[in-house]
């Protein structure tokens, strides 16, 4: 018997309460996600139970990372509305921002990959079989390289929320999946960008797997009216900060 939303929400609230208490007592803020977050049922058997082992090797191979170049992307990759013969259905948006390391330096010339559902909340993926229409003019995959300021930019359509089977009446808030590379393999990040003011936030175990409220807000883009183009598109900005040690960090 799948769980009710009430049960999941109660678990989320309790987990956040435990975190808030620990934060108050220790003064320590958690800036990351919890891998062991039972309200997201699939995480129960898919997180390590042993503590991570600190690598602690200044010569570790992971302190450098893969590089990408102009041969790895094409011009159409960053405009998800132009990858087919016709126009996709939905609300045209632009999403832009800077990729920074934890020292605040721009991450230049690195690969940013995105994927998302269409305006109806359906992925162009065989395993997404819920009864919302596929859009023949929208695949929902994009790539670009960050520029000299660490900036990425995509044109796409606003994805719809979609149902999933974590519990009864589970709906994901609208989101765009982001995959990012830094200058070191340790800085690798896969995350999700959310849209401001989504009413589904309190119900979603994945969004709420980040226990700290301020950290959760770092996954939410801002609407930027100056980026909106008259009679064409609405603009959103979202900066991304990569964590993890990297070679040359302390220079």
């Amino acid at each position: 018997m799948p769980d009710s939303q009430e049960q999941i929400t109660a678990e989320i609230v309790e987990s956040h309460r435990v975190y808030a208490k620990a934060r108050e007592e220790s003064g320590q803020e958690s800036r990351h996600v919890l891998r062991d977050f039972a309200p997201y049922r699939s995480s129960i058997l898919r997180h390590p139970k042993q503590p991570l082992v600190v690598a602690g090797d200044p010569e570790a191979v992971e302190l450098t990372g893969p590089v990408f170049g102009v041969t790895d992307v094409t011009a159409l990759d960053s405009d998800l509305t132009r990858q087919h013969v016709g126009e996709p259905m939905g609300e045209r948006i632009t999403v832009t921002g800077r990729v920074l390391d934890r020292a605040g330096r721009p991450v230049r010339g690195q690969l940013v990959e995105v994927w998302q559902a269409n305006a109806a909340g359906r992925y162009a993926h065989q395993r997404d079989d819920h009864p919302a229409p596929l859009d023949p003019n929208f695949t929902g995959v994009g790539r670009c390289l960050t520029d000299g300021d660490g900036r990425y930019a995509f044109t796409t359509i606003k994805p719809g929320p979609y149902p999933w089977r974590n519990h009864v009446n589970a709906w994901r808030p609208a989101h765009i999946h982001f995959s990012l590379f830094g200058t070191a393999f340790t800085q690798r990040l896969v995350t999700q960008m959310y849209f401001p003011g989504d009413p589904l936030f309190p119900y979603d175990p994945i969004f709420n797997s980040v226990p700290d409220e301020q950290a959760r807000q770092r996954m939410v883009a801002a609407y930027d009216h100056d980026l909106s183009v008259p009679e064409w598109s609405r603009g959103f900005t979202w900066d991304i900060v990569l964590d993890g040690a990297f070679e040359g960090e302390h220079r």
Partner: peptide, 16 residues
């Protein structure tokens, strides 16, 4: 700077 939290790749990364 404060890092952006991670989120799961989910089930639908396979076409991307």
């Amino acid at each position: 700077m404060n890092p952006t939290p991670s989120q799961t790749v989910g089930p639908f990364f396979g076409y991307a």
